[in-house]
Design a binder for these strands. Structure first.
Length: 555
RNA sequence: GGGCCUGUAGCCUAGCGGAGAAGGCGGCAGCCUUCGGAGCUGCAGAUCGAGGGUUCGAAUCCCUCCAGGCCCGCCA
């Protein structure tokens, strides 16, 4: 699919090429300035001419044409302007004909596995971890839209200390818990068992023994453990489903022990010159790969011969890499070192390397979230609170108390408020931010969509052969609608879903300005404007679906 | 001791080599005889953490320092 701005960019490149200027960096300035621009400062040295002279000369040699309406030289830049009439006409037609597919990019014929969440199934998700599934799910949606074949995966750590502790707790402790949701009920056993383990040597040994048996590949025990963690995992997924997050596949860590692949990989790594042994434990010395200090030793096995988590992670990535062209992992920043170690190991084995989106933590004003210290806000609490807050807002506005609507508004507010911040930025959780429903927020965007729907309900839309727009608020809106595919590309290339959240806001904001300036129903330009409203509604719907949010007809 | 990330107005954020640093919240002043006011307009508010450097050009790149987060276990 070639979109108007793509065609325009090609025309600009072609023009410059006709003068012998190839491979120059063309930039996209602020839209009030121009649509594309060529800065001439670097050419200044080779051509031995002042930049403004170069710009003037280039501009004078080029003629408008094709998608280019006008070429101007300004202060050392050659500015290119797109043919606005054609842009408006073609963009509107394109949106109205492509509908839900508008903005999609060509099929890449590449398979992507997005691994996200992968939380230990020992209790409910708290909001400190909620960033992970929201980033992962949104990125997966964007990649699909961008033409990739995407599968989402949850890597289930079914043989680590946390699950073993949970298992021990459930088997040995007798605790009455009223909670009906399994993740919330079982976490109490986990917490109790953790406490006991700290002060009771025997408990610790029993748990260690469970871990050891798992690592040795005790299928029966693993099955028993699965019976315990499964309901917890289902509880986690139930919470995620509330946020419109679904998972395609669950991959159990134990499979890489059971099928022996971890040990094959360890053997291969152990034969490398970087390998070493301490007792019987095998490690790689990563000094040469830029990892210094006391953590340069990357251990793959324990001295009892069993594999370590990171070794299994390597096996998992090799397995994944055989099933995908691109791997994208969503990980908390605390996993940076481990991810780097795994990356080096994969490289040494000549295997595919994953891209990782790291996110910073969500903490509370009092400090980092901790289930143990009771300093947590669970995702379910946040969701419940958001929904009840959305209901209040509806009541406040004298609207109908429709459960489907306020549930949707509450949920989407959470998703939006989390996704709009770049992943590498730490977030301090504050209820008023997490539940924000005005300004840069989900309801702002949904409201624009509901407004479009409301207008369209009141009038009959008939398509035209040609669309003509003149008001600057119309043009600004259309330009924003036309840039949708560019934002998809940017978001995918930079692996940053926050870019799409920002785009959604811009569309809604530009629509509000258009709405203020341009009367639709009853105006001379009603037919054109109805088409523009229709197109805006479509783009809002498409972008909302990328964010996992619902396009509401009313709210 | 070693390393990664972040620092932009009272608060939250965008921009990450190019053209008066862009939004939101909060504050102040306005906008309902127009299609939904979860909206819109205007005003005030920024030595882009500090100091050096590279460059025709630095919030953006490099170095040093300061502050905050995160990691450095034969845990996961």
């Amino acid at each position: 699919m070639k979109y108007p701005f793509d065609a325009f960019r090609e025309d600009v490149i072609k023009k410059l090429s006709s003068l012998g200027y190839d491979n120059l960096r063309i930039e996209e300035p602020k839209e009030e300035i121009a649509d594309l621009a060529l800065p001439c400062f670097q050419l200044s040295r080779t051509l031995k001419m002042p930049p403004d002279k170069i710009a003037e000369e280039v501009a004078s040699k080029l003629e408008a044409g094709g998608w280019i309406e006008k070429i101007e030289a300004t202060r050392g830049y050659v500015n290119f302007f797109i043919d606005k009439n054609r842009l408006a006409d073609e963009t509107i037609k394109l949106i109205l004909s492509l509908k839900d597919s508008y903005g999609k990019l060509d099929d890449k014929n590449k398979k992507v596995i997005v691994e996200h969440t992968s939380a230990n199934p020992n209790g409910p998700l708290h909001v400190g971890r909620a960033r992970n599934p929201i980033i992962g799910d949104t990125m997966a949606r964007i990649l699909k839209f961008g033409g990739y074949d995407v599968i989402t995966q949850y890597y289930v750590d079914d043989m680590g200390r946390q699950v073993a502790t949970l298992f021990w707790g459930v088997k040995n402790l007798d605790i009455e818990v009223e909670e009906s949701k399994a993740d919330h009920r079982y976490v109490v056993f986990y917490q109790e068992a953790s406490k006991l383990m700290e002060k009771d040597e025997r408990v610790r040994e029993e748990i260690n023994n469970i871990i050891k048996r798992c690592e040795e590949g005790d299928r029966e025990l693993l099955q028993e453990i699965k019976k315990i963690y499964k309901p917890v995992l289902e509880g986690i997924m139930e919470s995620l489903n509330r946020l419109h997050i679904y998972m395609d596949e669950f991959v159990e860590e134990s499979r890489f022990v059971l099928d022996g692949s971890v040990y094959e990989i360890i053997e291969k790594l152990a034969s490398l010159p970087y390998a070493g042994e301490e007792g019987k434990a095998i490690y790689l010395d990563l000094e040469e790969f830029g990892i210094h200090g006391r953590n340069k030793k990357f251990f793959l096995t324990r001295s009892n011969g069993t594999s370590l988590y990171a070794a299994r992670d390597i096996a998992y990535h090799i397995w994944k890499g055989n099933r995908a062209d691109i791997m994208i992992n969503i990980l908390g920043e605390d996993h940076k070192l481990e991810a780097e170690q795994v990356r080096i190991a994969l490289k040494l084995l000549n295997e595919k390397i994953p891209d990782v989106i790291f996110y910073s933590f969500v903490s509370l004003p009092e400090g980092r979230m901790s289930t143990r210290k009771g300093r947590v806000v669970y995702l379910d609490e946040l969701i419940d609170e958001a929904i009840s807050r959305a209901r209040e807002e509806l009541v406040k506005r004298g609207r109908e108390e429709n459960e489907k609507i306020y549930t949707e508004i509450g949920i989407d507010a959470i998703r939006y408020n989390i996704i709009k911040v770049n992943p590498d930025k730490a977030i301090t959780f504050r209820w008023e931010d997490a539940l924000s429903m005005e300004g840069e927020s989900a309801p702002f965007i949904q409201y624009a969509h509901a407004r479009c729907s409301s207008i369209l309900r009141k009038a009959d839309f008939h398509p035209l052969n040609h669309y003509d727009f003149t008001h600057q608020s119309e043009i600004k809106l259309i330009r924003t609608l036309a840039k949708f595919p560019d934002y998809i590309t940017r978001s995918i290339n930079s692996r940053n879903p926050a870019i799409i959240a920002d785009y959604a806001y811009r569309v809604a904001s530009d629509f509000n300005i258009f709405y203020r300036d341009c009367k639709v129903i009853g105006d001379d330009k009603e037919k054109e404007r109805l088409a523009l409203v229709m197109a805006t509604k479509q783009v809002l719907k498409n972008v909302l679906s990328l964010l996992g949010m619902e396009a509401l007809e009313e709210m």
